[in-house]
Write a protein that binds this DNA or RNA. Structure first.
Lengths: 220, 220
DNA sequence: CACTATTTGTTGCACACGCAACATAATATT
DNA sequence: AATATTATGTTGCGTGTGCAACAAATAGTG
């Protein structure tokens, strides 16, 4: 596990915690690591989760099977990705997804109860860890909320505008670049890529925006 | 505040905490109550939130203004509703919504920092409160995730099916009743009410489901 | 630079679904 | 029971956008 401490220090979960403090913290919260081989299941759909995890190495994906048993990939997971953060906080909840290793995967698991439990004061950054954890959980909700506010718009144009306005606000500039290519953007907004290109053209024609590739400018 | 303790005992936030324990807990977490008159703003869009709240009495709504300054109602709030739960956990985040009183509203505010802080052991249910809080935050994320998984489906039929299958699973029966009327269901799935009725008819004709009003049966 | 692969843009077609307008059923009110 | 009100169902029409197929631009490779 030692070799991963520098990596952990870079994660949101350990933000504000110095590398030399991490090892002690890990024993305090009863962290354990587990290895998975390719295609092995890390979380089974329908199971209950008591420990959340962080990927130390390797790649995974969260998947589920829809009504007609077709495989749907929900998210891709890489080093530093969190696993089961929402579920660990709701022990009654059944997991709506499975998490599967795509190659050799090493995961650091932390029992939710140990994270919550108030340990003695010899473990100074436990509270910071908890604070980071809650921040991650809350942020996931906010991110989903933002996406929904795009998805709810009735027309392509409004979906696109809602997204662009948000990024523009985040970067505090009418000129900005987006972190998604056309394909990813169309998936995020749940629209056809070609239809997205078409609508972007129309919006440029109508003087709403200017753009080239992933550089955009809002003309209000 | 005393008159609201019984109400508080019914909320998710105070689940598992006895009424007689609540008063002490409230002082421990530095809870304070605040009153708002009709149309007054409880949270301003764009502001940073350090205290989350629970509505003790009255009604409110969370709103925002879209690109063309049209008012959009996000959620309705009533007694027991939580305010700013996600935002309090992310102090950097600007509030994407405003919260407005619709009549005389009384809100119990709890500073996030006081909730997180580890107090002495004379306050036995502080940890339970924290656990409930995190559960609420996580649950909000899961609820949004569930809605997105409906919204992402390409066709009306699949949206409806995804929703119905989920409720059916939750109630562990092929025969079940849904908590939404047609209007609310169409808003949840972000589709036209009449189009929803039409598609439900088609699905009945095709032998997929049977239903009457809010009673449904999945015929696989 | 030549060549391939990837990303982005364009366009015609078809149809699913938004929309409006009305019909019918269920519920509430007197 | 009669009437008003609300919820749900039905249907015709128009169009926004999914879809497919291709073109153009950009990036990657040797």
């Amino acid at each position: 596990m030692k070799e991963h401490i520098e990596d952990l220090a870079q994660t949101k979960l350990f933000f504000g915690i110095e590398p030399y403090e991490i090892a002690g913290l890990l024993t305090c919260v009863h962290a354990r690591s587990a290895q998975y081989s390719k295609e092995e299941m890390i979380i089974q759909e329908g199971s209950h989760i008591s420990d959340f995890g962080i990927i130390l190495s390797g790649h995974g994906r969260s998947v589920k099977w829809d009504a007609s048993d077709k495989l749907i990939i929900i998210t891709l997971l890489e080093k530093g990705s969190e696993i089961g953060v929402l579920l660990a906080a709701n022990p009654e909840q059944e997991s709506p997804v499975s998490v599967q290793a795509q190659d050799e995967v090493s995961v650091l698991f932390i029992p939710y109860d140990a994270l919550i439990a108030r340990c003695d004061k010899t473990c100074p950054k436990h509270e910071m860890l908890l604070r980071n954890y809650i921040g991650i959980v809350a942020e996931k909700g906010l991110v989903l909320h933002e996406r929904i506010s795009c998805l709810l718009k009735p027309t392509l144009r409004e979906k696109v505008m809602t997204y662009l306005i948000r990024v523009s606000r985040e970067q505090r500039s009418q000129t900005f670049s987006i972190p998604l290519n056309r394909n990813a953007m169309s998936e995020y907004l749940n629209i056809e890529r070609s239809a997205l290109s078409r609508e972007l053209s129309n919006m440029k024609r109508d003087g709403l925006i200017d753009y080239h590739r992933n550089s955009f400018k809002l003309l209000v």
